[in-house]
């Protein structure tokens, strides 16, 4: 095993632990904290099914954002769609045998062009942070850095088109990480940059605003059923105040 292989194997185990344990812990915390009062915003669904549809529309179409600002919606929706497509393309590095639909030309080609889309979306988001005075005012260094980080991930990933690595070896490395059957990682500079940035993203995820991903599912204004008159919602901590009168 080369030093690079051992280093990156260790880093990936470390980052994955932070990412998954961290996220699981956040979700556990969010689930554990009660929502003591009903606060859904209109149009508030009156059934659980309605809530599921509402959340689906928010997650897939960014419906509220669309009604708020078209440019931000356009850039962020493109970025997130491209992120999904790129992620699907990358599944081929983690599955053996590769799932048939992942290896399909559609997913692989779409995943490739997604890199350009992603960059376009991210640059749009970056530009609005710089040029719109209101957004510039609220931006802290970390807001720019996260954008830069993801731009760099997309950029370095795209660079591998011109600085190719041994794809089969990369795949063996990652499948090896999953199956504890370790294999050498090619030590090409662009690849290592790309992977280092991804590791950084994994580590900061549970400690940053990237928590908006699980956050949306736990947002009481969006995930509550409008049934307060027919059903009581007394939080555990409020029960001590319950009277018998």
């Amino acid at each position: 095993m080369s030093f690079v292989t051992i280093l990156y194997a260790a880093l990936f185990y470390f980052a994955a632990t932070i990412l998954f344990v961290g996220l699981a812990y956040r979700v556990y915390e969010y689930a554990k904290i009660p929502a003591p009062l009903k606060i859904p915003t209109p149009p508030a669904p009156m059934t659980q099914r309605g809530v599921a549809i509402r959340i689906f529309r928010e997650v897939v179409f960014f419906e509220s954002l669309f009604s708020a600002t078209k440019w931000t919606w356009l850039f962020s929706w493109i970025f997130h769609l491209a992120l999904l497509l790129a992620a699907l393309r990358h599944l081929k590095y983690f599955t053996d045998p590769v799932w048939f639909w992942v290896s399909s030309e559609l997913v692989q080609v779409a995943g490739h062009y997604a890199a350009y889309l992603m960059l376009a979306g991210l640059l749009g988001l970056f530009a609005r942070r710089v040029f719109v005075d209101r957004v510039r005012y609220i931006s802290s260094p970390s807001d720019y850095l996260i954008l830069v980080l993801i731009i760099a991930i997309a950029g370095s990933g795209l660079m591998m088109k011109w600085f190719p690595s041994d794809i089969l070896a990369i795949k063996l490395f990652f499948v090896g990480l999953l199956t504890f059957n370790f294999s050498e990682l090619p030590s090409d500079a662009v690849l290592l940059i790309h992977l280092s940035l991804v590791i950084a993203l994994m580590i900061i995820f549970p400690y940053s605003k990237l928590l908006h991903a699980p956050g949306l599912f736990f947002s009481p204004t969006r995930n509550q059923v409008d049934n307060a008159r027919s059903k009581r919602h007394v939080a555990d901590w409020a029960k001590r105040m319950e009277s018998t009168k």
Partner: peptide
């Protein structure tokens, strides 16, 4: 936790 500082 969840604000993206998106400006919407």
């Amino acid at each position: 936790d969840s604000c993206i500082q998106c400006g919407a």
